[in-house]
Amino acid sequence: MKIVLIQLVLIGFVILTAVRLLRHRGARTQAVRRVGLMLFAALAVWSILFPSVWNRIARIVGVGRGTDMVLYALVVAFLSFTLTTYLRFRDLEARYTKLARRLALDEVGLPHQSETVPERQEQPYAGS
């Protein structure tokens, strides 16, 4: 087997990405995700060394060529990435909205608590 430069570059890239992802996940990362990531990385290395594996997969699922198969997989992966990112952002938005609302309401106090006009400053909570 003859290793070409592009294969080395790609393998290095995959390993770096996997390591980075593992490192940045923190303590609560689920083991399943890690195993999945390892498998994915292994598959990536495998398919770099033996590009024909994609051809075999493509033939099994009835797609013409391995390159097409990779493209389809990429499209699916990209769409799922877009979706999870969208959901995560929406979740984040809901959180900071709650936080901002709480801040705003605390700043102004309860309706009949003070008759003064609120300024942008801390308003002590007179918990009578």
């Binding site: 909205t97 901002a100 609302r101 801040l103 705003a104 309401l105 700043e107 102004v108 309706p111 006009v117 609120p118 942008r120």
Partner: peptide, 15 residues
Amino acid sequence: AASAGARVVRHPFNL
């Protein structure tokens, strides 16, 4: 709004 007599609740940024 405050000087017109409304209670004003201020979001810290646009939501």
